[in-house]
Structure formats: structure tokens, C-alpha cells
């Protein structure tokens, strides 16, 4: 299978949250107990029971009027997923087709993936004890649907055509074509094409991407530095230390022995 992706077109999104509810329904996720705290956004963020949250932001553009930005917050299925890089036991893994998935039977619950993810995606079952077995939860790209030849539940449900599922390369062309056709609608950038080395969630938007809740990221994979450290620095340090310390010991010892001979001090 080719690399699959989802295109989110914020211009078309009406913030209806059909996707958010469809995700719960397909994945059989329980509802959370929420409160209205002055926003339509609820649950407030993704969690073990909520893998997709539509975010609501009001943006005052002065004379240009108002924008109500609806941002999709769910796993981006990064091309170079930081969460996968971070997971010490390889419980998270990237499939060839695009989805970033999780072996729940490997996870030790260290939650480093949560820290590593630049999109704040992996979440934890805080209320599961030893017997239930707490797990990390996040969007699965509806892998079960994908393998049955269906599109993800969120995409399937979207009434306004804001979500589109397809091959990543093709979606990038679609996105770029839309921008080209309607330069007045969109910011001239496809978010996710290069961000953090690329993601499988691609965004085009009429408002700055930060208003959709997306972080400003460079083009290099998040884990570039830490992987460099792991693959280059660590072996170097390891060898240097072993050799260096043994060397120092040897030198010190030789000197002491020489001094010991001279002074006749005891030494073993």
C-alpha cells in the first residue's frame, strides 16, 4: 500500500464535530464528563477516551472581520514520528502505509512518547490500575477500517468535504492545487508537507496554522538531535570512556608504582 494520509481543509471545515463523534463511535470510546467553561471546545483536549478534538478559536482580524478557526487535533501520523523514536521498547511503530500504531502488550507506561510528541497526542489511561493495565491511547488512523478497504471514520463522516483520505503524494497535489486555484482563500502553505519531516495529516487553511492549534515546527524531524545523540554520540562516548578511563587508570597506576618503588611505600 502506498503512504496514506488525510487532508484537512480548514476553509471547508464548519466545526460541526461530526468527525469527533464518529471517532468515538467507531472506536467505541466512552464519553467524558465535561463542563462548559466558556467555549464550544469539549472535551478540552485529546485523552485516552477522546482521540480527536475539534478546537475552536476566535480570531479578530480587525477590519477584515472575524474568523472562527476550527482546528483538528489528533495524531498526525508523522513520517518520522518522535513518539516512535522515543519509545524505549518499540511499543509504538510506524507502518509502511503511514499509520503510527501501538503494541499495547509491549508498553511499559513510561509516557516518554507523550513528552516527545510535538503535537501533544499520546495520552494515558490515568485511571486504570495494575489489573486493568493502563495503556497509551491515540488515534489509530482507523487501521481496522483501512485494512478492510474503508476510509477512516472521521473522514467518512465529514459532511462538508473538509476531510479527504488518500495517498499522501496525491493529497499534497490536491492541497497545492486548491491553494493555487483559490489563492484568496488559503495561506500559501501545506502544513505537514515538511513540518517535522512531514506528517500524514496535511492541512491547508485560511488562517495562520497556529490558530488551528498547530505548533510552529521546523522541517527536520523532532528526534533528529536525540537520535544523533543515540546513534553517534553515545557509542563515541562509550568507547572513549572505556578506553580513556582504563588508560588513565593505567597511567596513574604506573606512576604510583614508580613512585612506590622510589619511596618503598606499600602497594598491592
Amino acid at each position: 500500500m502506498a503512504k496514506m494520509a488525510i487532508l484537512f481543509d480548514a476553509f471547508r471545515c464548519t466545526g460541526c464535530r461530526g468527525c469527533q463523534v464518529a471517532c468515538k463511535q467507531w472506536n467505541d470510546l466512552p464519553a467524558e464528563e465535561t463542563r462548559n467553561t466558556g467555549s464550544y471546545q469539549n472535551p478540552p483536549r485529546v485523552s485516552a477516551d477522546t482521540w480527536l478534538v475539534m478546537q475552536f478559536r476566535e480570531v479578530d482580524n480587525g477590519d477584515d472581520g472575524l474568523a472562527w478557526a476550527f482546528g483538528r487535533h489528533a495524531c498526525m501520523h508523522c513520517v518520522h514520528p518522535a513518539c516512535v523514536s522515543a519509545c524505549p521498547v518499540g511499543a509504538l511503530y510506524k507502518t509502511d502505509e503511514g499509520p503510527v500504531l501501538y503494541h499495547n502488550d509491549r508498553c511499559i507506561g513510561c509516557r516518554y512518547c507523550m513528552l516527545a510528541c510535538p503535537f501533544e497526542i499520546p495520552t494515558f489511561q490515568w485511571n486504570e490500575g495494575l489489573f486493568e493495565g493502563a495503556e497509551i491511547k491515540k488515534c489509530t488512523f482507523c487501521i481496522d477500517r483501512l485494512s478492510a478497504g474503508m476510509e477512516p471514520a472521521c473522514v467518512h463522516t465529514c459532511p462538508s468535504g473538509a476531510l479527504m483520505f488518500g495517498e499522501r503524494d496525491e493529497l499534497i497535489s490536491v492541497a497545492e492545487a486548491r491553494i493555487q486555484e483559490h489563492p484568496e482563500r488559503y495561506i500559501d502553505h501545506v502544513y505537514g508537507k515538511d513540518e517535522a519531516g512531514g506528517t500524514s495529516l496535511l492541512y491547508i487553511s485560511p488562517v495562520p496554522f497556529q490558530e488551528l492549534g498547530l505548533p510552529e515546527l521546523g522541517t527536520e524531524p523532532i528526534q533528529e538531535k536525540s537520535e544523533d545523540i543515540m546513534t553517534k554520540a553515545t557509542p563515541a562516548v562509550l568507547v572513549t570512556m572505556l578506553v580513556g578511563l582504563s588508560g588513565i587508570y593505567w597511567v596513574v597506576k604506573r606512576r604510583q608504582e614508580m613512585m612506590g618503588k622510589k619511596t618503598g611505600a606499600r602497594g598491592r
Binding site: 463523534v21 465535561t34 463542563r35 469539549n42
Partner: peptide, 12 residues
């Protein structure tokens, strides 16, 4: 319906 109730839980 809990899934909808969680989206808009309160009168506002």
C-alpha cells in the same frame, strides 16, 4: 446521548 452531551454539556 453521552457522546453529544460531552460536546455541549451545559446550557449557555
Amino acid at each position: 446521548l453521552p457522546w453529544l452531551a460531552e460536546c455541549q454539556p451545559d446550557m449557555f
